[in-house]
Design a protein around this nucleic acid. Structure first.
Length: 855
RNA sequence: GCGGGCGUGAUGGAAUGGUAGACAUAUCGGACUUAAAAUCCGAAGGGGGUGACCCCGUGUGGGUUCGAGUCCCACCGCCCGUACCA
């Protein structure tokens, strides 16, 4: 009988549903385990990245079920956001219709993967029920002091008269209008995440099961620094300009002050100085992104103002406006020290400002050339003898002592600052969660009453109300939606028309999954039982924003009583997976020089070369490229499932690369995965046809290999080493295939093989289990345990190294002591030959590992 | 620009500081077949040698160590993030 995944998979999915095996309910008799994959945006099609993400989560979930845990494994949709509005703009539909149709399609595509999802818990963040509870959370956060309003910059398209996302700004121009984008200030709502900067930073140390790289990225993002706030005294008597610096030790090298174009002084000068106004206007035409600002050419203009040098009597420093100074960080003003900062040095060379080495031993003044003398590039140890004899300038102690010196001298105030900025949540868009706030002429800013929640988005298209053919936010144009009585005084008032950033939606969905139908944001009995997420899995692209916002939200939810204390860090363990890539097949059009991309179906592969099927022409192969529609290298999981089945797709995405790295989808790899599963199925068939009383040879060898495989696969699955675990399964399958053991041993081996494969290829595993007469469903069967006695071996083979190079090997009893191993090694041929009758300089014996003889 | 990561045969990759290349793909050889496909068995990092063996080899250049793919430093290339893409 051939392996027919389409029948097998449908049958077992029906069986799981029938038995309701993935339904999660509180059960204190077992340890709970909550596994969660980052939920998808409902684009309408699942892609291989989803398949990989959910397969990783499913392996964990099924493994935990098998090892006696009560597992929660939910799925939902991160459903608000710009693509729905863009689709509405492009084709005239409604974002809501588009989104829900996509969700239906994606669910239909996800279910055939056979993941162990409790589908009863599914929700989308655009469900009125979900975003209504989110509004309740917002009101609680507001009351608790986690929310406030202030002005902030947005990208403004002056032609479309609308706010643009950073993604919609291309080379400084609006993506649709092509107009030069301006920065514009709007009053917006903020979460006070900066208040929690210190605890978000220090708590990173407790996240032992997070990747170190993610903790490090978050640490750098939060960016705690100790510095000094120095008020530079203006020579015109008009007060001071405060500059924050983490390097006051370089003060002797200061040669200018640079202030932000958005600094109050810049704004004041703008009105009276046309030359400065032009420059400030130019700065306002820059993207708001940090990358764009930092990569832009550093420019400035001299204001003509000067300040007194704080430590050199009689000296003054010019005040410049610099396009590289961020108003959001520090005081919006810095002092420039060209000798010890590369950016300042470039700026000084450009505008002919002095370059003065701040550190020198008397008589040893190092001239600065093209490279600033920063700690990494400075070999000389420099001293400061100016500031009360402080030690090494470039050491943190030296800098700290300098900060203290400045403070003691009354020249500044020591301050700890964070790079982390508050989280602006206002979006001038329709398809998001409405901010439940009302503006009243008499009462001012009034929170909506909880009993009036949810504040729902108007769906109606009457009067062309929700219309995306006109730029801007339809909520502002809606004829009636804005008009509401003030919740405080009852007089006519108007709603906030901004909606929330979609990161808000994804900052607490993990908590909602514990009680998705509760009439409060969480149900404490459920949240207390299920939280935290034991294993969270998603892409590295979320290493900072999503995960930091979620950590903030969890803390705020603890503070407002929606989560237990222990859920302040909501994700106990985090795993970041790589992308699924695919080769690009392309040629360059000889006429235009433009690239032409081919679909994989149009290509024949031969000897690592690619040929266009139609004319046999060779085309270029670009390996391991991110899947992209425009490059024609997207592999649709539905086609793979149709041709090979879900188990093959799952097996392949697990087998070919370690999960944290990118995996390249290859047709030959998928084919190989299918062949292997067929092979396993055939072995099962063969054993099923054996005489049940058949005796054979090598039963012990087969069972030893089986126990070794149990041990290897268990360790692999526990440590996300799925590809290595699969390699062991390949090897064990080959052993089983060649085995001449009796029926009893072979049956035990194939059933164990099925159990070990069950988290990865659950349908095939169920089928084998059933064929061999296994009891019940394999999904309910306990995980096999390796027999320690079957793992140990009597002898061990050690490599012998001479001077670190392998020169032979030595097989000795496993329990032989070190001295005897050394003696045996010294007596061996390669060592005797190398010694040439002399004595070894040194012998290193690592028991069970290696012998190294130094001659 | 800044922060983080990655780099190993033709290819994807394996390797608690301890035999580099497990396992798989592609390739080649063999069995089976009239033949092909499928299936099964086997070879295989590069170079040299009849052979036992020898030399070289984990992006590049240094360093630590008895021993480095693994740890440290610098550089090159690619990827992720950079606060309104999700």
């Amino acid at each position: 009988m051939p392996y027919t995944p389409s029948q097998i998979e449908a049958r077992w999915q029906a069986a799981w549903q029938e038995a309701d095996v993935f339904k999660a309910a509180r059960d204190t008799s077992k340890p709970k385990y909550y596994v969660l994959e980052m939920f998808p945006y409902p684009s309408g099609r699942i892609h291989m990245g989803h398949v990989r993400n959910y397969t990783l989560g499913d392996v964990v979930a099924r493994f935990k079920m098998a090892t006696g845990h009560n597992v929660l494994h939910p799925m939902g949709f991160d459903a608000f956001g710009m693509p729905a509005e863009n689709a509405a703009m492009a084709s005239g539909g409604h974002p809501k219709d588009w989104t829900y149709a996509n969700i239906d399609e994606m669910v239909a595509q996800m279910k055939p993967l056979g993941n162990s999802i409790d589908w009863d818990r599914m929700f989308a963040t655009c469900d009125e029920d979900y975003y209504g509870q989110q509004q309740a959370l917002f009101l609680d956060f507001l009351e608790a002091g986690f929310v406030y309003r202030k002005n902030a910059m947005v990208n403004w398209d002056p032609v479309d008269m609308t706010v643009l996302a950073n993604e919609q700004v291309i080379d400084g121009k609006g993506w649709r209008s092509g107009a030069e984008v301006e920065r514009r200030e709007l009053t917006q709502w903020f979460f006070k995440i900066s208040d929690m900067a210190d605890e978000l930073l220090s708590a990173l140390n407790s996240l032992d099961d997070w990747p170190a790289k993610v903790r490090l990225m978050q640490e750098n993002w939060i960016g705690k620094s100790r510095g000094i706030n120095i008020p530079f005294i203006r020579t015109d008597g008009a007060g001071t300009i405060a500059c924050y610096s983490t390097r006051p030790d370089t003060m002797r090298g200061a040669s200018f002050i640079a202030i932000s174009p958005d600094h109050p002084i810049s704004k004041a000068l703008e009105a009276e100085r046309p030359d400065l106004a032009d420059f400030i206007a130019e700065c306002r035409r820059m993207d708001t992104t940090e990358a764009a600002m930092e990569k832009a050419e550093k420019k400035g203009v001299d204001t003509g103002l000067t300040v007194q040098h704080p430590v050199i009597d009689g000296a003054t420093l010019p005040v410049w406006i610099g396009n590289f100074v961020l108003m959001d960080y520090g005081t919006g003003a810095v002092f420039g020290c060209p000798a010890h900062d590369q950016r300042d040095l470039d700026f000084a060379r450009k505008y002919d400002l002095p370059v003065q080495n701040a550190f020198y031993m008397p008589g040893d003044q190092t001239e600065v050339q093209n490279d600033a003398l920063v700690p990494a590039k400075t070999e000389t140890v420099h001293y400061i003898d100016h500031f009360a004899g402080v030690g090494e300038a470039t050491s943190q102690e030296g800098i700290d002592a300098t900060i203290d010196w400045f403070e003691a001298q009354g020249k500044g105030t020591a301050e700890v600052k964070f790079r982390l900025r508050d989280w602006g949540l206002s979006r001038q868009r329709y398809w998001g969660c409405p901010i439940p706030i009302v503006y009243c002429d008499s009462c001012g800013v009034v929170p909506e009453k909880k009993e009036n929640l949810p504040v729902t988005l108007p769906y109606d298209s009457g009067n062309a109300a929700i219309d995306f053919s006109v730029p801007g936010n339809p909520l502002e144009r809606h004829p009636t939606w804005r008009d509401v009585p003030c919740p405080a005084c009852g007089q006519p008032a108007r709603r906030e028309t901004d909606t929330m950033d979609t990161f808000v939606d994804s900052s607490w969905y993990y908590a909602r999954f514990t009680a998705p139908k509760a009439d409060t944001p969480t149900d404490r009995a459920e949240a207390d039982y299920w939280m935290n997420v034991d294993q969270y899995i998603g892409g590295i692209e979320h290493a900072i924003l999503h995960l930091l916002y979620s950590r903030f939200f969890a803390r705020a939810m603890v503070a407002t009583g929606h989560l237990p204390e222990g859920a302040a860090e909501p994700f106990d363990a985090l795993f970041t997976q790589g992308m699924v890539t695919h080769a690009i097949f392309k040629t360059d059009d000889p006429q235009t020089g433009r690239p032409v991309y081919y679909y994989p179906e149009q290509i024949n592969l031969k000897d690592n070369k690619a040929f266009f099927k139609e004319d046999g022409r060779e085309v270029q192969i670009i390996p391991s490229a991110k899947m992209s529609k425009s490059k024609n290298n997207v592999v649709d999981p539905l086609n793979i499932i149709r041709d090979y089945g879900a188990d093959t797709a799952r097996w392949f995405v697990l087998s070919d690369s370690p999960p944290e790295r990118d995996v390249e989808w290859t047709a030959s790899g998928a084919e190989a995965a299918f062949k292997h599963l067929s092979r396993v199925w055939n072995i099962c068939d063969r054993i099923g046809a054996m005489n049940p009383y058949a005796e054979g040879t090598g039963d012990q060898d087969l069972l030893r290999a089986m126990h070794a495989c149990i041990d290897d696969v268990t360790k692999g699955v526990e440590s996300f080493g799925f590809n290595a675990a699969i390699a062991k399964l390949y090897a064990f399958t080959a052993t089983l295939q060649k085995s001449k053991a009796g029926h009893k041993a072979q049956r035990e081996a194939v059933m164990t093989l099925a159990q070990l494969m069950a988290p990865m290829t659950p349908h095939l595993a169920e089928d084998i289990w059933a064929h061999q007469g296994g009891e019940g469903l394999i999904v309910n069967a306990p995980w096999p345990v390796a027999d320690e006695a079957m793992l140990v071996s009597d002898t061990v083979t050690l490599p012998i190294q001479i001077n670190g190079k392998r020169r032979g090997e030595l097989t000795v009893p496993a329990d032989m002591d070190k001295a005897d191993v050394e003696a045996a090694a010294l007596a061996s041929d390669p060592v005797q030959k190398a010694l040439e009758g002399g004595q070894p300089k040194k012998v290193i014996v690592v028991p069970g590992r290696i012998v190294n003889v130094v001659v």
